[in-house]
Amino acid sequence: MSPSGSVGPIRVLIAKPGLDGHDRGAKVVARALRDAGMEVIYAGLRQTPEEIVESALEEDVNLIGLSILSGAHMALFPRVLALLKQKHATRIRVFAGGIIPDEDAKKLKKMGIRAIFGPGASLDEIVATARRLVGPTHS
């Protein structure tokens, strides 16, 4: 093994909790993160918080991106955060996108969701935020 470049690319799990079946937004974000040089583990639709956290731990990701349109965010996001805490894995930062009313967004941020993107957010902004959340040790 070589000492040069021993810090790998940022790894992100993109998952869609909840019951809605639209993952176009999530896929667009996944592609943007890939094009920014990240390794994106795409977990797909209808993931439970338990499955999301289990995948995130196995894949040793730096970030989890949750996408939701179904309106169940107030039930599902805090559960993901709680499970991460329970597993001593709060090093994994969580961001979210979808249709989330401002009021809920405020509450979720207080609970520990690091960033929330509405339908109008630019991909550049999402990529920049992902980088910022992981910090300067990664490229």
């Binding site: 690319p9 890939r34 094009d35 920014a36 390794e39 994106v40 795409y42 977990a43 797909g44």
Partner: peptide, 11 residues
């Protein structure tokens, strides 16, 4: 091009 990837086998 970017060195990044989308890993989708878990689905």
């Amino acid at each position: 091009f970017s060195g990044g990837s989308i890993l989708g086998d878990r689905i």
